[in-house]
Amino acid sequence: MEHPPARRQRPANPMVQLDGVTKYYGPKRALGPVSFEIEKGDAVGFLGLNGVGKTTLLRILACGLRPSSGTVRIGGLDVLRDPHEVRKRVGYLPETPPVYGDMTVGDYLAFAGRIKGMSQEAVARRVPEVEEYARVAEVHDVLTRNLSQGYRQRVGVAQAIIHDPELLILDEPTHDLDPVQIMEMRGMIRELKDSHTILISSHILPEISETCDRLLVLNDGEIVASGTEAELGEGLLRSRRLSVTVRTPAQQPADGSPGTTPEAAIRAVPGVTRVEPAPATRRRSEPQAVTYHVEGDADLRAAVCRALVEAGHDVVALARAERELERVFVGLVGGVEA
């Protein structure tokens, strides 16, 4: 499958720079090699199914995991050389919010601020601000262990932004939230975009396509596509795709000609750019039937159908591939042919 161009112009003011970053757990490769840059102020979404390396990548960026090779720079600082300085500039919300169940929300946020290097006075000023911002002010005195998942997640965001970091990393921020909570979380992230560089991971496309300026699609530890939502959609859907299942009659045509193969017949249709037989799609009930994936620059259903019939083949099924971005994503990560 062809992917849209992954390279953008080199950012003038990069906040995040990764060059050839890999992560191995023993002999198993979890990530990379991955190289990309993110400009200051961008909101970037990492999209990928569970287990493709999103969390690994974000933890490396949050200075919580050492890459096996490659260099990572945050705000110009190398994470291995200056981890302490980098940590001051990064706010991180892991998939499970790191809250102490035995602390109240207020105490916990004060602790988070202090551990991130803020003074007592700065924390006293800042806690009410972030509580207001993350809409957790009403649970200030509640033990975090008694909070609902939605509140815990918001408290997690509040701890990540308490020291006003330049870079905010949110790992699956809408994980386990109900639809209303998801909408609230999206609203919060949209507001945060104004003042932070944000990296968000998700395996749900709408969650980040609505909040991010740019998407990086991860599969099997590698970035397989990158760009804005529009670029991704455009690149993949520039061509119209359809799949056609053809049954070739056993007997030769009456005029005695050798006959045209279905593939050749489709290829001869003006506007067709690509034809390939789908692997292992023979139907049990119709062993002669073969499915072809066809790409063209227009809606070619009628023309392909006519060409096949004229060449003496029976068209058993014809379907246009769906255009939704969801399908693009599934196609990108190789789950189902889009």
Partner: peptide, 27 residues
């Protein structure tokens, strides 16, 4: 959002100390 510039203090040990002592007293 107003930025609260972190004023770096040397009290990380004290911060951890107070949290952990509180954890003993709360548990």
């Amino acid at each position: 959002m107003t930025a609260a510039q972190p004023a770096i203090t040397a009290g990380a040990t004290g911060v951890v100390f107070r949290r952990e002592l509180g954890a003993y007293l709360r548990s």
